[in-house]
């Protein structure tokens, strides 16, 4: 039995402990904001926070979240107005939008750890997240904007 919280709600499951967290979130809890992009922790579309750290949920076995706090895009802010989300809107970052939940979760964790990143630190911190539409210029702008206050 694995016990943890998701967006503050306690969860208990006897699901296969080796199964990736992503599918528990999406298929059991219907938290569809977290996306499947590669299944090998290469693209970042599935990024969630575990105890505040950005983690790729597509390869993370459920067993490893036992006793820990998982936050998904749905739980980042009660009304969806985290400074990173507001910055994303201020610069109209998304095109198709599929990778953006992962990008936002990555950026929020980056800024929590390093509130005033340099341009190079932004690029380095966001380089695990792929955007095939190519919104990188605006992602960079939005992270910088979130860091300087929206």
């Amino acid at each position: 039995m694995i016990k943890f919280t998701v967006n503050g709600q306690p969860q208990t499951t006897d699901a296969d402990p080796s199964s990736p967290l992503l599918w528990y979130l999406r298929d059991e809890l219907d938290l569809i904001g977290t996306k499947f992009g590669c299944g090998k922790a290469l693209c970042g579309a599935c990024t969630v926070h575990i105890d505040g750290q950005a983690v790729r949920s597509c390869t993370l076995p459920l067993s490893t979240v036992d006793g820990r706090a998982v936050v998904t895009i749905e739980g980042l802010h009660p009304s969806g107005d985290h400074p990173v989300q507001r910055a994303w809107r201020a610069v109209s970052v998304p095109q198709c939008g599929f990778c953006q939940a992962g990008q936002i979760m990555q950026a929020a964790a980056l800024l929590a750890a390093n509130p005033k990143p340099t341009d190079a630190e932004i690029d380095q911190g966001m380089s695990g997240n792929i955007c095939r539409c190519g919104c990188y210029q605006r992602i960079h702008m939005a992270v910088r904007l979130a860091a300087t206050g929206v």
């Binding site: 938290l31 749905e74 969806g80 809107r89 109209s92 970052v93």
Partner: peptide, 9 residues
């Protein structure tokens, strides 16, 4: 869809 995309909806 800007809000929904950025809110995971």
């Amino acid at each position: 869809d800007l809000f929904d995309i950025t809110a995971g909806k």
